[in-house]
């Protein structure tokens, strides 16, 4: 059984916009998958279904054996502890320092200070941000803020890391650095990585599985694929 399975998934928003239609997808443990497609194609909706920010209208979403589509609101936090999410806009808590932002999930789980410190330092070393621990998010560059976001996503050693256009706001050099960090995490930690992106250069350079979504439908799924620009015939 695949680590992630989407079976006949449909998602329509309350305003009537159909975001996904009959999506079927299997992703194995430890895989690195790019989800590509133009703006509004349904990439972000697909990601949101995986960490239950959105609910499906029809179909099933299984993550690590858990039927996410049937998860009760009060239990969503249990899923999110196993999933690390990296956002385009970083979503850092502005009034907390870098250390506090990374430690936040672990503190809220009630772990002891020693374990928290060890795990935060491990995550910080992976993303290379040791000198900025006492800084606040607004004192960091975009690339640095994204590193903090990645560190927060991996601090609980999740089995799945979802990256929603993580390089969207970064310049090409910073984007490459961030991609190297994420690739390293995938290889060393064995976490499954699902990344939605627009960045042609990154997709072509990484040579990973590429799933293309167009108007809410999977139009291609290639092993070690390249960026394709799908157009209506």
């Amino acid at each position: 059984m695949a680590f992630i399975e989407l079976n006949h998934v449909f998602k329509t928003y309350k305003n009537g916009v159909s975001a996904l239609a009959d999506i079927n997808l299997q992703i194995n443990k430890g895989e690195f998958v790019f989800i590509i497609g133009e703006s509004g194609s349904g990439k972000s909706t697909l990601n949101k279904l995986l960490y239950r920010e959105e609910k499906v209208n029809k179909g099933n979403v299984m993550v690590g054996g858990v039927n996410v589509s049937k998860l009760k609101n009060g239990n969503v936090y249990k899923l999110r502890r196993k999933v690390g999410v990296v956002f385009q806009d970083f979503k850092l808590l502005p009034k907390l320092t870098v250390y506090e932002n990374i430690a936040y999930p672990l503190e809220s789980y009630g772990l002891d200070n020693k374990t928290i410190r060890e795990r935060v330092m491990e995550a910080v070393n992976r993303v290379g941000l040791k000198e900025k621990l006492r800084s606040y998010p607004d004192q960091l560059s975009g690339g640095e803020q994204q590193r903090v976001c990645i560190a927060r996503a991996i601090v609980n050693k999740p089995k799945l890391i979802i990256c929603d256009e993580p390089t969207g706001d970064l310049d090409p050099k910073m984007s490459r650095e961030i991609m190297d960090v994420i690739d390293k995490i995938n290889t060393e930690m064995g976490s499954t990585v699902i990344m939605s992106t627009h960045d042609k250069e990154i997709v072509n350079r990484m040579k990973k599985r590429v799933v293309c979504i167009h108007r809410g439908v999977v139009v291609s799924d290639q092993e070690k694929g390249k960026y394709i620009e799908y157009e209506d015939n």
Binding site: Y51, E53, G74, V76, Y77, K78, L79, R80, R81, K82, V83, V85, K91, L92, L93, Y104, P105, S108, Y109, G110, R152, N156
Partner: peptide, 14 residues
């Protein structure tokens, strides 16, 4: 801030 707390897996009680 609250939405970020939820996203990183903090339970509603916490």
């Amino acid at each position: 801030e609250l939405s970020i707390m939820r996203l990183v897996g903090t339970s509603n009680t916490v």
